[in-house]
Write a protein that binds this DNA or RNA. Structure first.
Lengths: 333, 333
DNA sequence: TTGAAAGCGCTAACAC
DNA sequence: GTGTTAGCGCTTTCAA
């Protein structure tokens, strides 16, 4: 590997001149620049990021912690955050939380040891203590708000998502509603349910406790939720499932037992997962602007590093994508 | 951040003594060790991986290049390779190929600039030229074999996968068979088809050209494949789909148009994706030992670094997981 | 406009 | 068993 030294020797200048040429950090004689450029090409010079990072105190690194790697939603976080990080000439380092504080701590220590420039904590669990005492480096909490904390975060307005889902199902004439939620110890699941319940109440509709099933945002919850509703004599005519990953197997399982969707039960999901277009019937879903949210999170890290961060909390709005799994309520006859 | 210097000062010893204590690289007086340990705790010392990497020439880094991040199969590669890399005290850096040679090259240059210890190229496209001239650092080609090249690789016996799928469907009495393949410019898709075709031929069954649909391993191919078969008057009684991600929407789409699975058509997938357990009917699939394959790939990188690599090509065997989407052929009548 | 030199944190060769 | 020192590749201050 060629180093600045090699380039400098070949170009007949000092290493500081080469450094300046590469970083445009000082005016340079045109002829000198030409010689340096030629030498860089000839030696196939590639900057050593370790030397650079050691000297500058910045490893040109941004860490991303996700609860799980194998999960369609988090895959999108990983993809878009990586794209945004790479576009800014930084490198993303991925870590999986696995609900294990020790794993999380090792990951953070490793990042700090690499002079990381900031860490994005996506959907961290409430127990994550790491987030709270890390004044040293810029952090952003992603897709999860920490009430009362003064930590920068990027979130969806999940309360509004619940309202929009409720409003839409009400507009179709449904009055007997059900909901499959995420884990109640996760704030975004509580917020979604709160918005959903409130808009129903405002319209004189009660969301019965017995029509709420608490899932875990994973595939297997969909099957269990279907069994939960199949066991009832008096089923809701429409169910909002707080993510598509649970909604899809729930639909399969309901139809396995003769429930027609949407004729018997309308099903609405959330996330606007690409699978929505691949199942029968096509799944109506609440969409999040994930790409924009990811870019905002990366931008917040950079701004903190530069000391130019103004808004500490960025809130995005959901939208609804109507497909085939929801329809107007058919009155019991 | 505390450095070796800080620890040394507090413990009243030299920095090399501290270094030796941390790395156990030389015998140490018990009393000295005690003092150093206490100082490490007191200063909250964390090793700086940039200093270490710069000095030692090893960044304690392993790169992983995947074609796509949002893809269930590759998510497993990412997860298991990360686990294996982390367990060995290295850090994984993830890159997305996107079928773009320039992106690939930037990724590789960045890794080299960080003194990477090796790169795992998973399922790289045939065009990837990067793989071919990288004698400088250890590499492993994962889930893809490069014929005639002398590059270390970890692969599934995809030819055998085709044979096993064919044997299984034949054993159920099917004689009119179909296949949905991956892109024919990807060797593993060709190998699977070759094995499938050969075992049928060996049993006196011809796989008709008109019953082969070339997909792209993505969700949307499943829908298109279903339409392809629906358009036929004389449909196969069993179809092997070369991955589950295509098989699942294909099943949905076939059933949408009244085709019963498995009564009318048996469907068999590949990858043993967790979705197999979440769809109706449960999907029969060819399974790959992905975790073991990932561990083998990481081990191969380390062995190359240590100069102890013996076997250059590790081949894993698939297995079959029978579920509900396949059944004995019902004779026409 | 350019060069010399210090130092980021670490390891290892050498000396004692 | 321990300390001194050089140097990995880079940026940046200071001088010229």
């Amino acid at each position: 590997m060629a180093s600045l030294k090699d380039v400098a020797k070949l170009a007949g200048v000092s290493i500081s001149t080469v450094s300046r040429a590469i970083n445009n950090s000082a005016p340079l004689d045109a002829e000198t620049r030409r010689k340096v450029d030629a030498a860089i090409l000839a030696t196939k010079y590639r900057p050593n990021l370790l030397g650079k990072g050691l000297r500058s105190g910045s490893g040109y690194l941004i860490g991303l912690l996700v609860p799980e790697i194998v999960n369609n939603t988090f895959s999108y976080f990983i993809k878009y955050i990586d794209e945004s990080v790479t576009a800014r000439n930084y490198t993303m380092i991925l870590g999986e939380e696995k609900n294990d504080p020790a794993t999380e701590e090792r990951f953070i220590n490793m990042l700090i040891g690499r002079n990381v420039d900031g860490i994005i904590f996506s959907r961290v669990s409430d127990q994550s203590r790491a987030v709270k005492h890390m004044a040293e480096i810029p952090i952003v909490v992603f897709d999860r708000s920490l009430d009362g904390e003064d930590i920068p975060c990027v979130v969806l307005d999940n309360h509004l998502a619940g309202i929009m889902a409720g409003e839409y199902l009400l507009s179709l004439g449904h009055r007997q509603l059900g909901c499959v939620t995420g884990p109640m110890n996760i704030a975004l699941a509580r917020d979604r349910l709160k918005g959903f319940t409130e808009i129903l109440a405002k319209n004189g509709v009660v969301l019965e406790k017995c029509n709420i099933y608490e899932g875990d945002f994973e595939l297997s919850s969909g099957k269990l939720a279907a069994e939960f509703f199949l066991d009832k004599k008096d089923r809701p005519t429409a169910i909002w499932v707080q993510n598509d990953i649970m909604a899809i197997p729930m639909m399969s399982w309901l139809s396995r037992y003769g429930v027609r969707i949407p004729q018997d039960i309308s099903v609405m999901g959330m996330d606007n997962n690409e699978l929505c277009e691949m199942v029968v019937p096509l799944l109506t879903s609440v969409a999040q602007p994930i790409k924009e949210m990811c870019e905002a999170a990366v931008a917040m890290i950079i701004k903190q590093k530069e000391g130019t961060l103004r808004k500490k909390r960025i809130i995005f709005k959901p939208s609804i994508v109507v497909r085939e799994s929801t329809s107007a309520r058919v009155p019991h006859g």
